[in-house]
Amino acid sequence: MRLADVVSIVLLAGAIGAFAAGLYVLGEQRDVLALYWLVVGALALRASTILLRPRGGSR
């Protein structure tokens, strides 16, 4: 596996963790923190897939 592959999998795992944290703290009635984790999860997930296509998204 190349470095970018490892980074994309780490980002995917991070995104899953962030989404899970967002839902967890939503259950703890900490809405702002939940929103924060959901935004972090979305950014991490987006980054994990962007790494797969380095040339402007062309296939």
Partner: peptide, 14 residues
């Protein structure tokens, strides 16, 4: 070979 290019380029793209 679809995700072509060195890792540095791919990380720079994101």
């Amino acid at each position: 070979p679809r995700p072509s290019g060195p890792s540095a380029d791919r990380i720079a793209a994101g």
